[in-house]
């Protein structure tokens, strides 16, 4: 269908504005990290990788990054089985109180992050769990769990239930049916959901801010604490670590399931 010119102009003008606004911080952070000066200026003083060399030497930043990786891994490892089972159960079976259950499982989204964070902080504090890494991973998993369940239900609802019956009819026992029919069908959802969980936990800021102390500070919190004082290019260089991670996850998503999965109508 050919589009009228005025429509194309309106759409493109707005899309270009959005593109600029979306990309500006990323580009500027990338540029600032390469500056050879001691402060960030525009136009840049010159190009150098000195800030990368500097952050590579900084043990506190490296440790903060490793802690963020640990948090994201724990979060993802919990989310995969929990979210997959829940997603399959919700999309395949007629569950009693389904509506109430859905509302309940959406609680991590309807309770504001600050509420969830403070609640978990009080709870973990009472249980003596603060000051460790894994409770932060659990917290990140709880607050983002609906993403995982969504991703799995989206895949599972495209699975024809007759396929499982057919497998059973051909003599496959339940576990074999699960591993050879059900699981491959929901695998795209599991992959996209777990990548999402990983990157969101890697970036998670507010809940980490509430649950971490000086010994367990994660990288986003570390950056936040440093922003307050003065803007130096080494912060830009660390931020590039996040940009690289984001790019990696996008490449993986595209490779494994295709980014188009997010455009599918449910």
């Amino acid at each position: 269908m050919t589009q009228p010119l005025s429509k194309s102009i309106v759409i493109w003008a707005m899309v270009i504005v959005v593109l600029i606004v979306l990309s500006a911080p990323t580009i500027v952070v990338l540029g600032a990290s390469l500056t050879s000066g001691n402060i960030i200026t525009f136009p840049p003083d010159g190009l150098s990788l000195q800030w990368y060399a500097k952050i590579a030497m900084a043990a506190d930043l490296r440790n903060a990054f490793l802690r963020s990786l640990a948090v994201a891994s724990i979060c993802t490892l919990i989310a995969i089985p929990v979210g997959t089972l829940a997603g399959i159960a919700l999309s395949k079976y007629a569950v009693r109180f389904e509506h109430a259950l859905q509302i309940y499982l959406l609680l991590p989204f309807t309770i504001p992050l600050i509420g969830s964070g403070i609640g978990l902080m009080l709870l973990f504090g009472e249980w003596g769990l603060l000051g460790q890494i894994w409770p932060i991973g659990v917290a990140c998993c709880v607050i983002n769990l609906p993403f995982m369940i969504w991703a799995v239900t989206a895949s599972a609802s495209s699975l024809d239930p007759d396929l499982e019956l057919a497998a059973a009819n051909c003599g496959a026992p339940p576990v074999a049916t699960f591993f050879h029919v059900t699981l491959p069908a929901v695998l795209p959802g599991v992959i996209s959901g777990s990548l999402l969980m990983f990157i969101l936990a890697l970036n998670e800021f507010l809940v980490s801010l509430l649950l971490t102390d000086a010994r367990t500070v994660t990288l986003p919190v570390q950056i936040y604490n440093s922003i307050r004082s003065i803007i130096t290019p080494d912060l830009a260089a660390i931020s590039v670590v996040f940009i690289v991670c984001a790019a990696l996850v996008i490449a993986l998503l595209d490779r494994l399931v295709g980014l188009d999965i997010f455009l599918k109508s449910k």
């Binding site: 500027v28 986003p220 996008i250």
Partner: peptide, 17 residues
Amino acid sequence: FLPFFIGQVVRAYGWLI
């Protein structure tokens, strides 16, 4: 997806610059 996956703190930092 790139800004979506970069996280809020880094993006806010970009705006500060």
